[in-house]
Amino acid sequence: MATEEKRKEILEKLRNAVIHYDEDTAKEASNEALNVGLESSDAIFNGLVSGMEEVGRLFEAQEYFVPEMLMCADALYAGLDILKPHVRKMDLGVKGSVVIGTVEGDVHDIGKNIVKMMFDVAGFTIYDLGRDVPLDKFVEEQMKTDSDLVCLSAMMTTTMGGMKKVIDNLKAKNPNIKIMIGGAPVSQDIAEKWGADGYAKDASNALKDAINLVSSLKKLKDEAEAKKVAK
């Protein structure tokens, strides 16, 4: 078992690797984490995700832009690919599967992929339909996979109208479904008017929302674990 000092050192290394978009160091630190017996989820959340949180802040402060964020995401994935297979599976009481995609007519998928990354981190089962997805496909996929969350993205004013149709169709089939929409032209107003449950206006906001979501899941998990230990 790693000492607290060693743990801190590795977490800091992971965090910095993400912030400085250093894929090699992210891999190295992830292997190191496994070698010294660090809990994988600890390394993911308190190392990689913590780094990504800082990236979100830098993006908001306009020190980082989309290219930097994409490179940071690559570093996060470099670490995640090593760590994820070692995360202990446990039942959170949350089903945790999501259908995600960019609506038909829109071929932009960067924002969608950033959100997807955070669901990846959280261990969700992801049904990624990609981009330019025919509207009916979202409904079909949700029914087929019985996912509890559907995320729709549109980068252009010219395509976001499609999201409303998907929301209407999904809610008609399954009123309890949770729907998140995002993309540059979307507003809180539109999200409310169209009956979406969540909204993110850009990648940085999506990242923040997704981190919040993932953090609260993590908290649930920690609480469950604490209860187990207490027993």
Binding site: E104, G105, V107, T158, G161, G162
Partner: peptide, 15 residues
């Protein structure tokens, strides 16, 4: 390019 000839709504062509 795709002009979305099959779609009833208005969609702009994409690559």
């Amino acid at each position: 390019i795709n002009v979305y000839a099959h779609v009833e709504d208005i969609l702009y062509p994409t690559i």
